[in-house]
């Protein structure tokens, strides 16, 4: 089978600082992969590189066999990749419904009804300005909005960051639902529990390089790796 997303020897720079030193990662159709690592090791940069948000890149980026290198962000998004960025990026001065409608496309299999169906709490607040939502609601809105264009791949950047445990549980359930529906997900997470609950394959990144990858069972066994490359607080 052909990989849906193929990242090979990806190098990236922010100005003069070299942040990715050859990241390689593949994601097969239907697969959920977790990208783990401490703060500042290149997780977010990897996702942003896929979306064409870094101007200085080297290496290979293929989506469904097609190179993403040099493509503008909106064109990459239109191919069917949705990113839910860190800190959600919801439009505070737009209503919940406007946030969703802005992302919708005629070709999409998602619509407002399916968004309300998945997130009933959002429907109750459809006319509310998104800036007035709670953190958990904002994260649901960010995910719902990312689904509106009908993506073929969902990139999630720390979706559970800063949220209360009950909300995290709710989000994990949502991600499992999406996974069950066959939507491939590349998840950046600091919480090992969340990764174990959702992903079947885990990739650990440190200092801009992939240092380990394996399935959930292997991750349980990889004590030393986890201690070495992930912070103890999050383990």
């Amino acid at each position: 089978m052909k990989p849906l997303l193929e990242i090979a020897d990806l190098q990236a720079w922010y100005g003069k600082s070299h942040v990715l030193h050859g990241v390689s990662l593949t994601l097969m159709p239907g697969e959920t992969v977790a990208l783990l690592g401490r703060n500042g090791v290149g997780k977010t940069t990897t996702l942003r590189s896929v979306m064409g948000l870094l101007s200085n890149l080297k290496g290979t980026l293929l989506f469904d066999g097609r190179s993403l290198m040099g493509m503008p962000t909106h064109a990459i998004a239109s191919l069917g990749i949705s990113l839910v960025p860190e800190h959600r990026g919801i439009f505070a001065t737009l209503t919940v419904e406007e946030n969703l409608k802005l992302a919708w496309r005629p070709s999409s299999r998602w619509d407002l009804a399916s968004a309300w169906n998945m997130f009933p709490a959002l429907e109750e607040r459809r006319k509310t300005y998104a800036g007035k939502l709670s953190g958990g609601e904002q994260q649901m809105l960010a995910i719902a909005r990312a689904l509106m264009p009908g993506p073929r791949l969902l990139l999630l950047d720390e979706p559970t960051e800063g949220l209360a445990p009950v909300i995290v549980e709710r989000l994990v359930a949502t991600m499992r639902e999406l996974k069950a529906a066959g939507l491939p997900i590349l998840l950046v997470e600091q919480s090992l529990d969340v990764c174990r609950a959702i992903a079947e394959r885990h990739v650990i990144i440190d200092e801009g390089r992939i240092v380990w990858s394996g399935d959930t069972q292997a991750l349980e066994a990889a004590d030393r790796i986890v201690r070495e490359h992930l912070t103890l607080e999050n383990a």
């Binding site: 979306m51 962000t73 998004a77 960025p85 001065t93």
Partner: peptide, 20 residues
């Protein structure tokens, strides 16, 4: 809506597939 959203973050608007 794209115009109003763009005044908050043009990057996020382009992430939704809109040509800013």
């Amino acid at each position: 809506a794209a115009l109003r959203a763009g005044s908050e973050s043009t990057e996020m608007v382009s992430l939704l597939g809109i040509n800013v």
